[in-house]
Simulated scan of single mutants.
Amino acid sequence: MTSGSLHRLTAFTTTANGGNPAGVWIGETLPAPEIMQRIAAEVGFSETAFVAPAIGLERTVRYYSSEAEVSFCGHATIATGVVLGESVGDGLYRLTTTVGTVPVAVRKRDGNYEASLTSVEPKHTAAPEALVTEALTALGWRREELDGAIPPARAYAGAWHLVLAVAEAQRLANLNYDFEALKTLMLRDGLTTLQLVWRESATVFHSRNPFPVGGVVEDPATGAAAAALGGYLRAEKLITTPTTILIRQGEAMGRPSRINVDIPSSGGIVVTGQAVWI
């Protein structure tokens, strides 16, 4: 077995009881896929990042949930950036993922390391009516509860997410869905999470992210979905760019997270956060 060091952090927070926990494994070479899957299952977090080699600004990374490999994971990338900052120092790291190269700028701010990832080029498609209907049924939501100003969409910035925006905060606050039904439709459609959002203001969104395909009822912070949402809002001119939005996630779970999303006029979406050891 390839040897390496395993770190456990929680991302998009400055306290150990907030954010989204992630594993970060760093070694000279990546383990075999079945070994990475086993380690991720043993760690038990929504995702673990596997990073090699152990030195340098150029690294290869793979992401695994407890159940399967994931194409891209934002919170584990932020956690990786913080580990690299603590062990190597400030810098612009370039992570080669299965979906492309993701630059990660790492710096110390107010005594703590933070990381900013720049996503691959985002894209989106309108969500098919059948997919939306099936998702709403699994969620127990009614179509009239959706926000007509932000139409349902399949959005991508390294992984695919179904964006469903609701008109009222209370609808988002009450989340009790059919786990197996939602998992089935997500596997069929190649979705990583559902990006369920309520827009509080022009630059503040609240988000909840079911992740049954990873064996997780809900993610408390989802950086990949945040980037995908930013790309979708920009492409459909639902927001004026360049701008920065704040996504508040995890509050209903008791693990509050803050995801800062810089949306330039073109190119990748920049997602920034801190992470702490747990």
Rank of each mutant, 00 (worst) to 15 (best):
A226T: 04
T10Q: 01
G4P: 10
I239Y: 05
T80H: 03
P103I: 05
G111I: 03
T243Q: 05
Q195R: 10
T29W: 09
G267W: 08
H161V: 05
T96W: 10
R142V: 11
V217F: 15
T96Y: 12
V24N: 01
E58L: 12
E144C: 08
R208W: 06
L30V: 10
P152Q: 08
R143K: 13
P264G: 09
S257V: 11
L238R: 05
E67G: 11
K183L: 07
P152N: 07
V276W: 00
P256H: 07
A173F: 12
Q37V: 11
S66V: 14
V104I: 12
L238F: 05
S119P: 01
I247M: 07
R255Y: 03
T193H: 03
R62Q: 13
L187Q: 14
S65N: 08
A159I: 07
R255W: 01
I55E: 15
V104L: 10
T14W: 02
V99D: 03
E145G: 15
G23S: 09
D147Q: 09
T137C: 11
G190A: 14
V88S: 13
I269Q: 00
P103Q: 08
G23L: 04
N260E: 15
M1I: 13
S3I: 12
P31I: 09
L92F: 02
M1S: 15
R59L: 09
